[in-house]
Design a protein around this nucleic acid. Structure first.
Lengths: 147, 147
DNA sequence: GACGAGGTTTACGTTAACGTAAAGTGCTTG
DNA sequence: CAAGCACTTTACGTTAACGTAAACCTCGTC
């Protein structure tokens, strides 16, 4: 796959009150099975904006969620630029002007179309995979192996 | 999007008996809204193997289907290498040895897992998009525009 | 026979999304 | 206090998937 091969995404955290916790870059990296480099890169691309404590980056709950959404977007084939567009507009929403908001709605509709298209693609590809699977098992059976 | 932005895929062909027709590279390119360069590149990567008529490439029905599947795979985030792996194994199936076939089943199971994961991602992202959409419309309403 | 529309090869260029290496900072632990 | 670990910045390297340009055939047609 080009996309990350879909790790747990939801880190199986201890049942700590997730609220108000903060994380180091290494913690987040392990949680989502990415490298710190990746996380820094996303910051550089304007997708994350952690606080600093001295020199070190401190990630809060909000940052964790953004990272989660970013990775999910990636798995669905969105580019970082697209993800940023939505995410930053979302943040600017409360005081956003009408033009911006309409633009946001436009983008969202677009993404939705895209998802629908992907659903159809998945449906079709599933059928084809099932088909190939069946044929392969047939051939195996004819070879005397139990499938 | 990183992926092709999902054109018609099924070219709205005339109701000609599709069987046994053949296409030039330009025709295929227009059908699927890609450039000839892309199609040649896929050939170079071992995904297509058109006949030659003199110097020119001649694509048959089978090639068209393979291109269609390739583009669908791409939209779902598969790399050309992955697509090739499945497609070539599929072609080698009838006389494939058992090892190869088991390997094929493995790959297929993997792809299926991937699709399931994507379905879930789509579900979640849909909800989030709907949520953002709602909020945006709220803000717009409070600004006195009709949404 | 010039020309334009399609096709061809060869080859270098480009972009996104990181990887990797080097060199430094700061804590805490034996 | 040295060692180790986790963090930092800077910067160059890498890969996939094409784009783009140049230079060349080969038709049908004006």
């Amino acid at each position: 796959m080009t996309q990350p091969t879909a790790p747990a995404d939801e880190a199986s955290q201890e049942a700590l009150p997730r609220q108000h916790r903060h994380y180091t870059i290494g913690e987040l990296a392990r949680m989502f099975e990415v490298t710190p480099r990746t996380i820094r890169f996303y910051e550089q691309e304007g997708l994350l904006a952690p606080r600093r404590e001295g020199q070190k980056r401190i990630y809060r709950e909000k940052d964790r969620v953004r990272l989660k959404l970013t990775l999910r977007g990636k798995r669905l084939g969105f580019s970082l630029a697209e993800i940023r567009e939505v995410v930053t507009m979302y943040d600017a929403m409360p005081d956003g002007n009408a033009r911006q908001l309409w633009r946001l709605l436009e983008i969202l509709a677009d993404k939705r179309d895209n998802l629908e298209r992907q659903l159809e693609d998945i449906r079709l590809m599933r059928m084809e995979i099932d088909d190939v699977d069946h044929r392969a098992r047939e051939v195996l059976r004819s070879l005397g192996h139990e499938a």
